[in-house]
Design a protein around this nucleic acid. Structure first.
Length: 921
RNA sequence: GGGGGAUUAGCUCAGUUGGUUAGAGCGCAUGCAUGACACGCAUGAGGUCACUGGUUCAACUCCAGUAUCUCCCACCA
């Protein structure tokens, strides 16, 4: 065994191991019929994406799940890939063209799409390289892209199938229009943002009663040129007489009717609503009900068109708002304006207000909504934390109740072009969709393409990624290898994602799986649901915010560069740190100091291993068996039993964390065990026995055993350093290349293995060690209180608590002296006077000070302690004197209370004795 | 308007199905080169568990209400 450097140097380790893992195919996931499958589908990052903290958290968690599964012997597959990200990518390339003074129209569709592919080759998918830096153990040989040939075929097949089954239709409806991207968006891609604006109160003159006016409130005067009516509530007394009459729209000046419609809120504003069917969803509905015309005053890019009239034509909508208000004022139509905050829908991608706009789009009626609900209600799919199931269910209910459909067409070029062909020569509005001579829908297109025109629109990116869990296994193809893989890995096991895409992605994947995998069926029984769902567990991560709780964003500059963090803290440090601070399902407040914990832990691990190496060689550490053989059970102390007991316990804690998806508790459990129990107490306590040749080998073997198990438990979260130490400590069995091949022991197996060699792990060792720790701490505290913490030549006296205490003290004397850093511990049978003392379960210790003690300080300290004990005694007595407690509480609890009281009383008495023995001040 | 979540030490959070005297990390104070680790070691200070009721032998934990903060959904222009 060589030696290790003083501090862990992540860089020297990480790239080297990653390359070896990847080169040797360690992450390859394949069908192994004898093994249980465990598959995770990566939430495909955008091809334009760059690694941010959210990715770190999300992908570290996935890596933890997949690595743990691998250690458990499952056939683990983490399927990586990317999303073509229609709008984001197209926008990116358009921006580049604009720098050259070009527009995509200048190139034409085909050339433009070529440009995007070129961009993708050069700049796309950086994130997949970055993921390697954090150690993501994806099966890169499978890296998928939603526009790959096979994947595209799956997307088109899904479209055609759903069309055949009647879920798809084309319709002229109100949709969300992004004037920057110039495409429709689904409701889920629109985020509502509160906006500070103005509420304009305007007056429109009554046609039938010149000189009289109707007051109307609006936040959008720029659309009034598209007004075709004014609506009031039918039961609004104020306006009852006016219904059926008309007002003058100020510009372009026109008579428009006053109508009654229940959609109008009597309480809001003046109770009169200007109706602009082309630019507002409610207005559109009102318009439909009353047979009103539709006047669109906007161009697709959000500037005003000819219908708006002078001077508005060509003006941007926000500019037009100001101009319209000014014009209203000049005409005397503006009564007042007041500051007003309302919520405006913004395009998630382009971050500009969307326009409700009447356009022809493709719509999807969601399939298998009822089954998607049942899948979660009946527990076929489990959310972690569970409460997110409510969010999911709530959304589905809204979809069902309000019959909300999904707008899946996009007016873009980058994406899957909708596989629908229209007969040339027939105007689109005259097409009969039931006539195959008019409309052709198929994956490969019509046999006589010259007679058809393909639909120009492409599909929403989510309408491709919702097939992710099965399209990646070759669905619907007939390749036998892929079919076998689909059968083996699907349903996948765990999905790790953020709550923000529960609607956008999670729910839709469930519906797609239910509808499209397996035979076409109208209604699915539970057993079938269980077979068709895309995943069984959904782990929802929190959002990473900065230390002040603000969202991370480029504009705020509060978003750290993960690669920089990796440089400074190591990939393992960052992984450990981020998971360590991630509470379950809550937002995470990030600060660098909190990541330091991870780096420090790695360094601690490193140094514990380093210390082990410096302490002496060992024959063979490559199996548990050879390590355990070196232990002489007769030489094991309470400390050994205790640490091995705790080791078994931490195995079951880790198991519980994974079973319950409480992943944040997983690093906590190991941190506590390794740092506090193993390093601070076990290793420190063993130092004495490591010096003794008789016990040395046994102690080192225990250390080897603990380290070996701990590395296996830690591998999922800190794979690099554990691999490095695994190899360096000689733990690798011949024939096994990596730590991951060694598997992990279940707690029960770990216990069996140990007990086969050393006999039953002594259950009383726990209490014994706790008592010794307490005594050690008391001694150290006394030293600190008397400012002699650094002296090692001090003598302590101890009045043992009975024979048992005496025996324990005798057994551990040397260890105790070393742990407490004192010269001698002398047993006495009488309480010495005039010495500062501490009371423990093993006896009362006294600090033998040459100088006089500070009686006042000592008295104060003891009185403070006695105060606490008094409280405990009172509480205990009250409890035990209550017959109801003694009757009703479980025996163990009552016994526990009795024991507790007894202990508190004896300690109380002992302290009272000490107080009495204090000399007068 | 509907729904979710939160409220525990200065900060960020744990706290199992109710059961001893409520924990951790960071920060803070004090001391320390002790056969690995200053990315360290030791000791310590610091808490009316938001509030009010209820259930119970027993409530940080369960129930109801109040307050404050937060997120999601929804067509008040």
């Amino acid at each position: 065994m060589g030696t290790l450097d003083k501090a862990y140097d992540a860089h020297a380790v990480e790239d080297r191991w990653y390359k070896r893992w990847e080169d040797s195919g360690a992450f390859r996931g394949e069908v192994r019929e004898e093994a249980e499958p465990y598959c995770i589908m990566i939430p495909p990052p955008n091809v334009t994406g760059m690694l941010h903290m959210g990715h770190i958290l999300n992908n570290t968690l996935q890596d933890i799940f997949i690595r743990r599964a691998r250690l458990e012997g499952k056939s683990a597959l983490w399927f990586p890939g990317m999303d073509h990200a229609g709008i984001a990518t197209q926008t990116r390339v358009e921006r580049r063209l604009r720098e050259e003074g070009l527009h995509r129209r200048d190139l034409g569709r085909e050339k433009f799409v070529d440009e995007v592919w070129k961009w993708r080759e050069e700049h796309g998918g950086i994130i997949l390289q970055q993921l390697r830096k954090i150690g993501a153990s994806c099966d890169w040989s499978r890296t998928s892209f939603t526009l790959d040939k096979d994947y595209s075929r799956a997307v088109l097949t899904a479209f055609v199938e759903l069309y055949k089954r009647g879920y798809l239709y084309r319709g002229l409806r109100m949709s969300n229009w992004c004037p920057v991207s110039q495409t429709a968006l689904s409701n889920e891609e629109v985020v509502m943002k509160p906006q500070q604006g103005l509420l304009y109160k305007m007056r429109y003159e009554l046609v039938e009663k010149p000189g009289e006016h109707l007051l109307i409130s609006t936040t959008r005067p720029e659309t009034l040129m598209g007004d075709v009516a004014v609506a009031v509530h039918p039961e609004d007394e104020r306006y009852r007489d006016l219904v059926g009459k008309h007002v003058w729209r100020p510009f372009p000046r026109a008579r428009i009717p006053i109508i009654a419609d229940e959609a109008v809120e009597i309480e809001f504003g003046t109770g009169a609503l200007k109706v602009t069917p082309a630019h507002d969803a409610i207005d559109f509905e009102i318009g439909q009900r009353h047979g009103l015309p539709i006047i669109d005053v906007f161009h697709p890019d959000g500037t005003l068109n000819e219908s708006a009239g002078a001077p508005f034509v060509g003006m941007d909508r926000l500019e037009a708002r100001k101009v319209a208000a000014k014009k209203l004022e000049e005409l005397g139509n503006l009564v007042e304006t007041e500051p007003y905050e309302n919520k405006v829908g913004f395009s998630e991608r382009a971050d500009v207000p969307v326009e409700p706009r009447l356009t022809m789009q493709w719509w999807l009626r969601y399939p298998k909504v009822e089954e998607a609900r049942r899948a979660v209600e009946k527990g076929h799919i489990r959310f972690h934390p569970q409460r997110w199931a409510k969010t999911y269910l709530h959304w589905l209910e809204t979809m069902e109740r309000d019959k909300i459909d999904w707008c899946i067409s996009r007016q873009l070029w980058w994406g899957h072009r909708i596989p629908v062909w229209y007969r040339k020569g027939i105007p689109r509005e005259e097409l009969d969709f039931d006539n195959p001579d008019h409309v052709h829908v198929s994956v490969d297109g019509p046999p006589d393409p010259e007679n058809w025109e393909q639909e120009e629109d492409v599909l929403d990116t989510w309408a491709s990624s919702w097939l992710w869990p099965f399209a990646n296994f070759g669905w619907p193809g007939s390749d036998p290898v892929k079919k076998r893989e689909l059968a083996y890995f699907y349903p996948t096991q765990t999905l790790v994602t953020g709550f923000d895409i529960i609607f956008l992605w999670v729910a839709r994947m469930v519906m797609a799986g239910l509808e499209l995998t397996g035979e076409t069926r109208e209604v699915l029984p539970d057993a079938e649901i269980s077979r068709r769902i895309p995943f069984r567990d959904v782990y929802i991560t929190g959002l990473i915010r900065d230390a002040k709780g603000q969202k991370m964003s480029k504009s705020l500059g509060n978003s750290p560069d993960p690669l920089d963090l990796i440089k400074r803290f190591g990939a393992d440090g960052l992984r450990f740190g981020i998971v360590n601070i991630a509470p379950s399902g809550q937002d995470i407040l990030f600060s660098e100091e909190r990541i330091e914990v991870g780096r420090n832990f790695c360094n601690k691990l490193w140094n514990a291993a380093r210390f082990r190496k410096m302490s002496g060689p060992s024959e063979d550490t490559s199996t548990e068996g050879t390590i355990l053989e070196r232990i002489d059970p007769a030489l094991l102390s309470a400390y050994d039993h205790w640490i091995l007991d705790r080791l078994v316990e931490v195995h079951s804690e880790v198991e519980r964390c994974f079973e319950r998806f409480e992943i944040h508790a997983y690093p906590h459990a190991l941190y506590e065990f390794f740092w506090s129990d193993y390093c601070d107490w076990y290793v420190e306590a063993s130092k004495t026995r490591m010096k003794d040749p008789a016990t040395q080998e046994t102690v080192l073997a225990v250390q080897d055993f603990v380290l070996r198990q701990v590395l296996r438990l830690l591998e999922p979260i800190i794979p690099f350093i554990t691999e490095e130490l695994w190899q360096s400590l000689g733990f690798s069995r011949s024939g096994e290349t990596f730590l991951q091949d060694a598997g992990v022991l279940r707690a029960v197996s770990c216990r069996d293995l140990l007990e086969n060699r050393i006999g039953t792990i002594d259950p009383s060792s726990r209490a014994e060690v706790e008592n010794l720790k307490d005594l050690t701490t008391r001694i150290r505290a006394l030293k600190a209180q008397y400012n002699v913490a650094s002296r090692r030549d001090l003598s302590f006296w101890i009045l043992p608590d009975g024979k048992a205490g005496e025996a324990v003290l005798e057994r551990h004397r040397e260890t105790l002296l070393n742990l407490a850093q004192i010269e001698t511990l002398r047993m006495v049978s009488e309480r010495p006077e005039g010495m500062p003392a501490g009371v423990t379960a093993l006896g009362t210790v006294f600090l033998d000070l040459a100088q006089a003690i500070d009686v006042a300080a000592e008295r104060e300290r003891l009185e403070k302690e006695i105060g606490k004990l008094e409280k405990g005694i009172r509480a205990g007595e009250a409890k035990l004197n209550n017959p109801k407690f003694v009757d009703k509480a479980p025996e163990a609890v009552v016994d526990g209370a009795r024991e507790q009281l007894e202990m508190t009383r004896s300690r109380f008495e002992e302290i009272q004795n000490l107080l009495e023995s204090l000399p007068e001040a």
